[in-house]
Design a protein around this nucleic acid. Structure first.
Lengths: 189, 189
DNA sequence: ACACATAATCTAGCATTGCTAGATTTTCAA
DNA sequence: TTGAAAATCTAGCAATGCTAGATTATGTGT
């Protein structure tokens, strides 16, 4: 009776195709081009099939966002490991954060602007989000009081830099200087 | 020949009704409830009339966003004047910034998340945006190097705090502590 | 007061979207 | 082979942004 296993595997595979297609279209043409019809055509099934995988369009975006959080956590951890020393590690991680957002703007948009159902201050926190948060915590020194507080603040500053630069409201040329200010000001040792 | 003046005045008045209706509906039901049909019904005209005022729906959002920037600038200036001393002034202004966003979330959303055509790093900067930026610059001390750089960074940090709190990703209860960290870290004297 | 050109407004509709009820086909076990 | 259940499709609804072309109102010149 390996039939149901095969079916489950095929279903999971198809679900992967859906999110991959969504991500790919969003990356090249923006999220407004990611329509349910377009996704259906991409995976060569009809629309109702998508709704057997996801409750609605936003759930597809949220699935992509979760992928993004997993990858962000990995990228931050990698950056942190490159260099053990405190402040330099913080700088590397912050740089990696900005690079992640800059290299995959549509993905970052899904994570922070579109997936409005993904919160994690409350109890219904998704592990992916907590994990990415933990990756940031790692470079915030415990020396200076509340670590969670410092992490939240650093995250907010980095996110603000990403958003204002993406919307063209701060000078892209000054990115590194701003980053230095943030790291020196908020990740002090 | 005061006829054309009267017509222009009535047109301007009607345009004000449109943005006011958009703002009001957005505040109470969210921007997704702000449809062109709904706005047309609200001002008791048909849809094409709206398109004689604004190029498209986004232009209506942008008009509301500009109102928001004007009001933000006023609110920040007011907060700065309450207290002349350096660091305390910065704290007041930062608090005012967060309060503005918290009290009018839909307006803030229009300003930063929706009005994608409103940028001001480039040359096509709208004066309203520059003015709000200037209100923030006022509390950043010129002592420590590049003032524009410091202002951009402070703005980004405040914006990040707003966004992450609005999306439920940082604890609302720790707002004041985070704000203190940002002010102490980025608006140093 | 009246005719007429122009400006203002409306009617009606298109194409697209997210989503779904119900028909139809496929699958697999008895 | 058959028949129930699972998987998939067809076809359509209601809502949206936007617009062409018909219609009405307005102000001017006679």
């Amino acid at each position: 009776m390996g039939v149901s296993e095969r079916k489950a595997r095929q279903r999971a595979e198809r679900e992967g195709h859906i999110t991959a297609a969504a991500r790919s279209i969003a990356a090249s043409e923006g999220w407004s081009a990611v329509t349910v019809r377009r996704l259906a055509a991409e995976i060569e099934y009809t629309q109702p099939v998508l709704y057997s995988h996801f409750e609605n369009r936003e759930a597809i975006v949220a699935a992509v966002a979760l992928e993004g959080f997993r990858e962000l956590a990995i990228a931050l951890r990698q950056a942190a490991q490159e260099c053990a020393e405190g402040r330099e590690a913080a700088r590397k991680v912050a740089t990696a954060y900005l690079a992640f957002a800059a290299e995959q703007p549509a993905l970052y948009e899904a994570m922070f602007t579109m997936a409005s159902s993904l919160r994690f201050a409350q109890g219904d926190a998704r592990p992916e989000l907590q994990d990415a948060f933990a990756a940031l915590t790692a470079v915030v020194p415990a020396s200076n009081g509340d670590v969670e507080l410092a992490t939240e603040t650093l995250w907010a500053a980095l996110h603000g830099l990403v958003e204002l630069e993406r919307s063209g409201r701060i000078r892209p040329s000054a990115r590194n200087e701003r980053l230095a200010l943030v790291v020196d000001g908020l990740a002090r040792f």
